[in-house]
C-alpha cells in the first residue's frame, strides 16, 4: 500500500442491482486516472460460496482493469463499523481513503460517472492543500 495514493474502495455484490448499475462509473474512473496515484478496489460482499460459480465469471465478463476482491468475513456487525461508523450496512457504498493524511470520506449511495469523477477529484484537491 503506497502512502501517497488515494484509494477508492467500492462495496458491491452481484446480487445488488444499483451496485451493478454503477460499475461503469468505476471503470470510467479507472480509465481516466490510470497514470495517477489513484487505486480502485472493488470489494464484493457476495457469499464466499459463490466466488467461483458466480463472482469470478461475472468479473471476468466485465473485462475491467481495476482490482476485484471478495470480503470473506463472517461478522458484519464487527467489520461494518471498522470501515466506517456511519455506514448502515446498505450497499452500494464507497470509501475514499488517503494513506498519507489518514483522511477518509464515506459515501452510502450510488454514483453516476460524473458524480464519481467530481467526488474523487474534490477529495484529491483537499488532500493537496
Amino acid at each position: 500500500m503506497s502512502s501517497d495514493t488515494i484509494y477508492v474502495v467500492n462495496f458491491w455484490a452481484t446480487w445488488c442491482k444499483p451496485c451493478i448499475e454503477e460499475l461503469p462509473s468505476f471503470d470510467a474512473l479507472e480509465k481516466s486516472t490510470r497514470n495517477q496515484p489513484v487505486k480502485i478496489i472493488m470489494v464484493s460482499l457476495d457469499d464466499p460460496k459463490v466466488l467461483q460459480t458466480k463472482v469470478q465469471p461475472f468479473v471476468k465478463k466485465l473485462g475491467y482493469s481495476m482490482e476485484f476482491v471478495l470480503l470473506n468475513e463472517s461478522k458484519p456487525n464487527e467489520w461494518i463499523n471498522r470501515i466506517d461508523s456511519t455506514w448502515s450496512g446498505a450497499i452500494p457504498a464507497t470509501l475514499l481513503f488517503d494513506g498519507r493524511l489518514g483522511r477518509k470520506e464515506f459515501h452510502e449511495n450510488d454514483f453516476t460517472k460524473d458524480d464519481l469523477q467530481k467526488t474523487v477529484s474534490n477529495f484529491r484537491m483537499l488532500n493537496n492543500d
Binding site: 500500500m1 470480503l71 470501515i83 456511519t86 494513506g99 489518514g102 470520506e105 464515506f106 459515501h107
Partner: peptide, 18 residues
C-alpha cells in the same frame, strides 16, 4: 491483504449520504 487495508481506514470520517 484486505484486512490490512481495512485496518488502515481509521481516522476522521465524513459521511456523505443523500
Amino acid at each position: 491483504y484486505l484486512v490490512g487495508l481495512l485496518a488502515l481506514m481509521f481516522s476522521v470520517s465524513m459521511m456523505f449520504s443523500a
